[in-house]
Design a protein around this nucleic acid. Structure first.
Lengths: 161, 161
DNA sequence: CTTGCTGCAAAAGTTTTGCACACGT
DNA sequence: ACGTGTGCAAAACTTTTGCAGCAAG
């Protein structure tokens, strides 16, 4: 709630930030919701994340910048970003929600090390057509695809034996 | 803990139950763990599930059969079954763990309706080779693959408009 | 001005853990 | 016998919700 850093002027990702901010604004307006400084800050923090992130990382990023939002606000905003299609869930593990920026991005798969937790994103262009084919077969309207591979990373193998 | 129904004599799935029971036993022995009636009951309940299930469904099944185990025991046993490779996690949503029997089964994908929660399993033979290829590219030892597609089912579309 | 938003704290829900006692091997 | 396992209840954690005051459109 400290207005010491204007939400409309983030410190990075400027190139992608402007259109996404507009997309989010438009989405909120269409839903009769409001574009608040807090929501702008959450969007900033999300854009600052690299790859897959958790709600807590957004909170941490905000704190490190001197902002402090209630967790409820963060969770509520993440839900709206999800609804807006700006971020997507990744489902790495069942204990926590994992997200990633999806707006305009191609589908990707995730390779997760079961020992270290390291996550590697990889391109998987075939996913979109696979998704559409399976959905068509079952009469579903496709919304998202997720491919997660678990394995043991080279680092983990070395340090373990 | 009620010894009124011998765990070694389940009521269904006999065909697959015997080898799996043996697999589990061997796994436990190798780990220096014990094969207890409770663990046998959990395995029975898991075998009785069709498709994807949650920890709570195992508990429910056990209760319906007149057995009552502590939740801790169920969770601990599911973890061992996971380690033994008898079941696998499906990660349908981030709030709860979802499992399915994986022992000897081919990789499958899951199509989930975001409106009704209905889950459709489908065969996806290409997953195994995809998994191995991606793992090889990154030097990982493959453990599992998961493909989850979210969409809107035909039923949901109808009832919603 | 009206309606929605925020922060706080409490609630909810699943999974884990500590402990005293019981049981497989 | 020894080392694990079990049940219970409390703890741990993430996420949600209720509410009083505040702010965006």
């Amino acid at each position: 709630m400290k207005p010491d850093a204007p939400a409309s002027m983030p410190d990075s990702n400027d190139g992608i930030m402007i259109p996404l901010c507009a997309v989010f604004r438009r989405f909120l307006k269409k839903q009769g919701l409001k574009f608040t400084p807090e929501r702008a800050l959450v969007l900033d923090a999300v854009l600052a994340q690299t790859g897959v992130f958790e709600a807590d990382a957004v909170d941490g990023h905000l704190r490190s910048k001197g902002h402090r939002l209630g967790k409820a606000t963060i969770y509520r905003t993440l839900k709206h970003l999800l609804d807006a299609g700006i971020i997507g869930e990744v489902l790495i593990g069942a204990k926590q929600s994992h997200y990633r920026l999806t707006f305009g991005q191609p589908a990707r798969g995730h390779l997760v090390c079961i020992a270290t937790g390291r996550i590697v994103e990889f391109a998987a262009p075939e996913l979109e057509s696979l998704r559409d084919r399976i959905c068509a077969e079952h009469g579903f309207d496709p919304v998202s695809v997720r491919l997660v591979i678990h394995g043991v990373s080279p680092e983990a193998r070395e340090s373990d034996e």
